[in-house]
Structure formats: structure tokens, C-alpha cells
Simulated scan of single mutants.
Amino acid sequence: MEIRQLQYFVKVAKKQHVTQAAEELHVAQSAVSRQIHQLEEELGVPLFVQKGRNLQLTTVGKKFLGRMEQILRDLDRAVNEAREFLDPEAGEIRIGFPHSLGINLLPTVVARFRQLHPNVKFRLRQGTYNSLIRDVIKGELDLAFISPFPEQNEYVSGDLLLREELYAIVPEGHDLAQMGTIRLEQLKDEAFVMFSEEYSLRNIVLEACAKAGFVPQIGFEGEETDTIRGLVAAGMGVSLLPEMALTEISQLQPAKVRVTEPQVTRSIGLIQRTGEKLPHVAEVFQAFLRDFTLGNKKSTS
């Protein structure tokens, strides 16, 4: 059994199509088919069945895929660790992040870190709250920015980096657009533009509204901060967004108003798998991030 066979098998399992897998692997389709056939012969069981133009994993194939993905991840990590031993400055960091932190925080810290460590590579993956935690637990990510920070989770641990204020956003012509501050209850009769259910910011907004004594009327839903901001600016409703998501200027720009009763914040942290020994370069980045956020807290206090 060769590593190449396992790599081809995992790619075909993901694409469910030999031709598409071959294209991504930059090899001939016949080479992929041959390696899969040899692997099945060596194992003595079929790993795929034909379903129309696609291939689907058999029951054995699904179990085999889970094992092989972990083996290839471990192999990839072992290779990176060996390279880091020769040159710790040439490693790779696999890091996840939610969309709302990819607008400002992530690009800023990565750019600053690369000024100090120009040869370090980043493999980035955007995800939702639950998917980021899952990928850290599975070992597919070394670290993940996450919000809210999971205070109690036996499988992941990390650092609470900062707390960020959420602002009310309303259309420019709204009666509250020119107010310096508002109470959240002043929005109780408005239609809200909310994140979809899998996004953690939705729960933060719902909990804040509950504290203010009302259940928001949801008029529209979106999956990215840009979508929420654009819909509000277009007059489709109101919402609450983190300050970082409001720094970028766009053609459709809502009015931003501070909320004081209750003040709405979210926690932002960096997590890793509990008990996991991080690659050296990821530890360096982790320490850099602690200093970076600590410096920002001091400068704003």
C-alpha cells in the first residue's frame, strides 16, 4: 500500500468522480483508476460503487476514508515538524476563522506576523462556530479564531483575546440614525436583518433583545456581515453588528449607533485541541497574538 494510493483514494472519495479527482491531482484519469483498483485488490473489498456518473463509497469505504484522512493529516504534520526542525521559520500554520473576523482582525495579525516571520505560510479556512470547533477537534486545524469564546468545552481550550462591542445599524434616513446612543428596546418594533441559525452572532443578538424585553421580528436573514450591512443600508430593516464589521466603507452604508441598555458585546478567542502539542511555528504565532491583543487593550484603555 503506497501513500500515493491513499491520496488518490481520499481525493476520489471527496470528489465522487475519477475525472474531477484526476484534474485536481494533475495526473491522468487512467493513473487514478489504476491506483484505486490496485488498492481495492490489496484490501480485498470494493471501496466504491458506481451511481450514474458518480462514485459513492461503500460502507467499508466510508470507514476506510475516516482512517486514511487521519493518517494523511498525521503524515502531513510529521513532514511539517521535520521541516520546522531544520528551519522553524519556514513552517505552516493551519488556522480557522469566522467571516466577521476575516474582515479586519485576521488580515491585520497575519500581515504583522509575516513582517517578523516572512517565510511562515498560513493555510486558512473560514467556517461557522460549530464547524471551527469540529475541525480543531478533528485535527484539521491547529488553531481557530472563534466568537463567542467557549468557556467550557472539554475538547478545546485556549485564550480569551478580547471583547468587542456590537453596534445597532439602521438605514441612513432612519429616525434613530443621528442619535449618539440608543436603548435596544427602541428597536423592538423594527424588522431585524439577522444571521442564519448556524451563526453565533444570531444568538448574541437574540440574547441581547431578550434582556431588553422583546423578541425581534425577523424580516430577512443573511450569512455574511456584508450582506447584513447592505440589506440594512437598503432599508430592509435594522440589525446589530460587531465594530470590526463596520470599518470597511462601501457604497451602501448604514448608520452606526451605540447601544447602551444593554451594552452588547461578544468575546473573541483563539482555540486549540485540548492537550494538543502545537507545531513550534503555531506556538510562536499564539504567543505573538497574545502580545498583539494585549498591546491593543493597553492602547485603548
Rank of each mutant, 00 (worst) to 15 (best):
E2D: 15
Q7N: 07
V10G: 07
K11Y: 01
A22K: 02
E23N: 13
L25W: 00
S30N: 11
S33P: 02
R34D: 12
E40N: 02
E40H: 06
E40Y: 00
K63F: 13
L65T: 09
R73F: 07
N80D: 13
E81I: 09
F85P: 09
A90H: 14
G91W: 06
R94L: 12
F97H: 14
S100I: 08
L105Y: 06
A111C: 09
N119E: 13
N119L: 12
L124C: 06
T128Q: 05
N130E: 14
N130K: 13
R134I: 06
D142F: 10
P148C: 04
S157N: 13
L162M: 09
L162Q: 11
A177K: 05
Q178I: 09
F195H: 08
S196V: 14
S200R: 11
E207Q: 14
C209Q: 03
A210V: 10
G213C: 08
G213P: 10
F214A: 10
F220L: 15
E221Y: 04
G222Y: 04
E224H: 14
S239A: 14
S250Q: 14
Q253K: 01
A255M: 06
V259R: 08
E283C: 13
Q286L: 10
D291K: 11
G295L: 10
K298E: 14
T300F: 08
T300P: 00
S301V: 11
